[in-house]
Simulated assay, not measured.
Amino acid sequence: MDTNTKVHHGHNIKRLREMLGIKQDTIAFEMNITQQSFSEIEQKEVIDEKVLSKVADIMKVPIEAIKNMTDETTINYINTFNDVVTNNNGCPFSYNSNCTFSPIEKIVELYNEKIELYERMLKDKEAMIEKLSGDKK
């Protein structure tokens, strides 16, 4: 990045937030601050690393996107982001262009886990009943 280029962290957060369709009050809620306080963050040229990290996590963007974004890089970032989102064979926000699992198989797997849990609970219940019946004798 050109060292003469000024980066405004707050403006970058605002740009990314608007591109992603996230409202200020949503991020403010996640950060446990008021919407007005978050608005003030968006006005700051330089933002503390800890705050930047938290905002980046909430918006699910790399912190570098906020720290290094300029007018030129904004366009490149948007294009790259859109390419990743739209060209990934149905796996949203994935950098791996091939899904490695079948949704149907996952549903079956979860169903089988549910059945196993239910059977264990029944066995535990029967054991508890047997134990309590034995205590009465």
Rank of each mutant, 00 (worst) to 15 (best):
T5R: 14
V7G: 02
V7M: 05
V7S: 04
H8M: 12
G10N: 05
H11A: 13
H11W: 09
K14Q: 14
R15L: 15
L16M: 11
L16R: 00
M19V: 08
K23Q: 12
D25I: 08
I27V: 12
F29T: 12
F29L: 14
E30R: 06
T34W: 06
Q35K: 11
Q35S: 07
Q36S: 15
F38M: 06
Q43E: 15
I47M: 06
I47N: 04
D48H: 08
E49L: 11
K54C: 05
V55M: 03
P62E: 10
P62T: 03
I63D: 00
I63L: 03
K67E: 11
D71I: 12
E72G: 05
T73Y: 03
T74H: 05
N76R: 11
I78S: 04
N79V: 12
V85L: 15
N87P: 01
N89I: 00
C91Q: 02
F93W: 07
F93Q: 05
S97Y: 10
N98Q: 13
C99K: 02
C99E: 01
C99Q: 04
T100N: 14
S102Y: 00
P103N: 09
P103G: 04
P103I: 05
K106D: 12
I107A: 13
V108E: 12
Y111M: 12
N112D: 11
E113C: 10
E113K: 14
E113T: 09
K114S: 14
I115C: 11
I115H: 12
E116Q: 15
L117Q: 15
M121H: 14
K125G: 09
E126H: 10
A127Q: 14
K131A: 14
K131G: 15
L132T: 07
S133Q: 10
K136Q: 06
K136E: 02
K137P: 03
